[in-house]
Amino acid sequence: MDHRPQAWGRPRDDVYGAYDASYLHTNGPKTATQSPIVTGTSVIALKFKDGVVMAADNLASYGSLARFTDVKRLRPFLSTSVVGFGGDVSDMQFLDRHLTELAIDEAYEHDNTSSSSETPATAGQLNAANLHKYLSKLMYRRRNSFDPLWNQILVAGFDSSSTPFLASVDLRGTTFTSPSLASGFGAMLAQPIMRRHAATEEDAAKLTRDEAVAIVRECMKVLFYRDARSLDKYSIAVVTRDGVELSEEEQLEKQSWAFAERIRGYGTQTV
């Protein structure tokens, strides 16, 4: 007989092993993303004369495993802006749900369908600059609570004076804008190509839509060549004042792997 009342009714350690009571600890350390799990690679975007073009491939990797090959990482917002996500895919999906909610609220609040025809249907709704500000505050708040959303996000669209807008925000809430932007590997591989065509805002304002799309497609090809966590299937979005055109089933064309033969210096080579 054990005379300690707190032991009564408990399983004996020597029979069942020590009892794991950890699940009872609801006030234990709070959990937060400490590293991304399923990830998307680069997102790239380039401004042009009357809008912005953005692209990202359709791959979600699990470490070095190409885990999901049909994940769309660009999403339109209120048919006036586009948001592109790099980094953790579950955090992207959380933000996606959150933005859907925000868009619904916004569409209800500024319902211009019944008002006069001179006010555009989207008047008064959040533009890309407003959305970017909002997302940056959200990301910064999450970093302040040590529970970051592990993404780098590009936002494309127009600002309040109806000029093309492109800006980035990352998991720490750092924000910046530039005529061309690229996250992840794209910052090393695609950004130099895009900057060659649009080093300044003035240069970008001279680019036509077709030129911009061609440059971005070229960048996607380079990224597929050199980024091991990439895919030849990608999405491309073009935002203009008329709205968002999003194509999610693009295939890299005219690949040439001839350059690969000339690469020397990595691992075993016979010659």
């Binding site: 054990d2 300690r4 707190q6 032991a7 408990r10 399983p11 004996r12 350690d13 020597d14 020590a18 009892y19 794991d20 009571a21 950890s22 009872l24 600890h25």
Partner: peptide, 12 residues
């Protein structure tokens, strides 16, 4: 030691 019982709530 005599049999031990899981009176300790600490995680294993």
């Amino acid at each position: 030691n005599g049999p031990n019982y899981s009176v300790n709530d600490a995680p294993r």
